[in-house]
Design a protein around this nucleic acid. Sequence first.
DNA 1: TGTCCCTTATA
DNA 2: ATAAGGGAC
Length: 474
Amino acid sequence: MSGTITGMWFRKDLRLVDNTALIAMMKERDDNESVIGIFNINPSQLKKGTLNHQAFFAAVEQFSEEAEKAGLPIHFIVGKPEKAFETLKKAIPELTKIYFNRDERGYGKKRDEAMLTFFSDYKIQVNHFQDSHLHGVSEIKKDNGEAFKVFTPYYNRWKKLKKPLFQKEEFADFGVKGADFRQLFKEEQKYVSDLLAEIPIELKGEVGLQRARGYLSRFIDKKVSSYEVDRDYPAIKGTSRISRFLRTGELSIREVYHRLNDSDEGGNSSDTFLKELCWRDFYNMIYAENPEQQTLEIKEQYRGLHWNQNQGMLIAWKEGKTGFPIVDAGMRQLNQTGWMHNRLRMIVASFLTKDLLTDWRLGEAYFSQQLVDYDSASNIGGWQWAASTGTDAVPYFRIFNPTLQGKNFDSDGTFIRFYVPELANVPIAYLHEPQKMPLDIQKQVGCIIGTDYPEPIVDHQKMRSEILSLFKGQ
DNA sequence: TGTCCCTTATA
DNA sequence: ATAAGGGAC
């Protein structure tokens, strides 16, 4: 083959449509330039065996098949990015240009910065783009040039800014086939097929653009108009459920934004939902501004908090055996499905930090294993919000009462009964406080407290005053 | 995107 | 007795 080769390096942008870097590559290429698709697997970054990992690689597998069908076979390269690209360059010396959509925070940002140096050393030209968010981390600043720290003023600015367009082009529209050098990477292909063989079949259903668009359409057609109210009730499927497709990039954030806007001409039924898309940009920006936030409280004042080290409490929380029905139902939804309703994420996070006095980092770490929609910026931001240690976080004295939250947001107990089957027959009068059930009713409904379902592992009022004094003492 | 507890008003 | 409102944490 004469001419040069240009690579599209896919990462959390597993899509052939409205992919900023991919479209740029196809538009800018000239006739003697071939293109290839690349995906790097860095074994040291894998969280094998977790739902997060399995869901992501289920999407990778689906994407790889779609890309091959569309004429862009994906070349998997394995190892630390520098090593993997060194091997790639040795096997394909004509590779002189790379396109990718950059990561603007966290591990991905460090990787991208290191790789810019690497590519420059190897005389590989690089073009990279902001593709993952409606507004990148540096786009929205206060008038004095500083980053926002509070959500509402950030949102007011965000709302006014013009959003990037949805680009309808797909790879196939350009009438060019990607080159196929996969026979040079037999070992890597074996590694990938072994890795994919470990993915449970249940996780392979919730993947792909078609699926994602199904959720999006259902949400826009049927749910967004009542989203503001319905989204708070876990028993109602009132949320969009597109988060898993946004974190893999199977669904473009621009497609989401413009479909919402087009369906809501002049109305404001989607304002509350747009706010959630803004939170996604906000926390992305906050993580870029606070690169240590995965391990360090943003509020310096609270860096020395003395958290409870009791492992048993943490385990009870993880397993959904705290004796607080709404908390347990939420944790079991997470464990069984890899997803948790947003109201419940707030409740269980408040419970871990404010009722069990447990370090928010442990909760964040558990979510990072379990969530099929895990996004580090949103997850860390959410945990620091709940722990009252983040910027624009809930004030430390604004403490959720888990029993009241259950009564308010699952008043008839539909959600609790579904995920905590041992409580299925408990009368509603006792469902949110099963420990108050008289023994004869316990026997009658087949749920003995302390045997079939735990006593509350803490006294909320007691823990509330304890956490208040912990925070006040800082 | 809270809850508690007090006061005051009304029954 | 209960609702509504406000301050405190």
